[in-house]
Amino acid sequence: MQVRFLNMGDSALTMEIGDHINRNMASSVAAIDHRLGQELKSKRLVGVIEAVPTYRSLTVIFDPLILPRATLKRRLLALFNEDSDVADCATRCWRLPVCYDEQFGPDIAAVASAKVLTTAEVISLHADRTYMVYMIGFLPGFPYMGDLDHALYMPRRSAPRVRVPVGSVAITGQQTAIYPWESPGGWQLLGRCPLPLFDASRSEPALLAQGDQVKFEPISARSFQLLEVAAQDGSLDLSAFRLKETFA
């Protein structure tokens, strides 16, 4: 893996491990992030404000007047070359309900047509698969998951939507995600999930975490409404959607 350092303005530096999606690369990023966290905790490195791990890179936000950029690069390279293991965590598995009706998935017909599939085939290709949460980002609790079946690979929309509804289940490239909030967005919308993915008042605000495994369960519009009501009045037990066994 060839490492590149990319400047993002005067106070952020991206250490790029690669340019594509790959589980080994994501694990490598997680390892550097973990080691950097230890350096900061023990104050062996000062001037770092925070770090953002992604599929393929680690962005470090820092104060260049406290921590010279050249020093930061040198330390990150040393952490990258360090040969230590990150403790494995027990994998969490989720089965998340999704309504794929056209009212919730306005792009599903266009995806089916572009891929010469029926809508039902798009749904089964999307739902019958185990995804890994590669990272949380873009918006609070937004899970980037992969990998899609190759038959569903689609580019982003050329003009991003100004408003994507909360809960929208979307795809682009080999990735799938759920929008935890109403927001602008450029992905293709296939359906909607009624569970609240992020709640600042919960002790763990984000439902999903990096490394979790996720499958989708197609539900009717009626089930969607019932779950949505339960989520709103606080009677929904989110742990019920977490499976005790791991996916085969």
Binding site: M8, S11, T14, Y55, R56, S57, R156, A159, Q175
Partner: peptide, 17 residues
């Protein structure tokens, strides 16, 4: 498009349009 990576305030994104 790129495989999503970190962005900070001030970054100037160029979408497909």
């Amino acid at each position: 498009e790129i495989v999503s990576d970190g962005i900070v305030p001030g970054a100037i994104q160029i979408p497909g349009n």
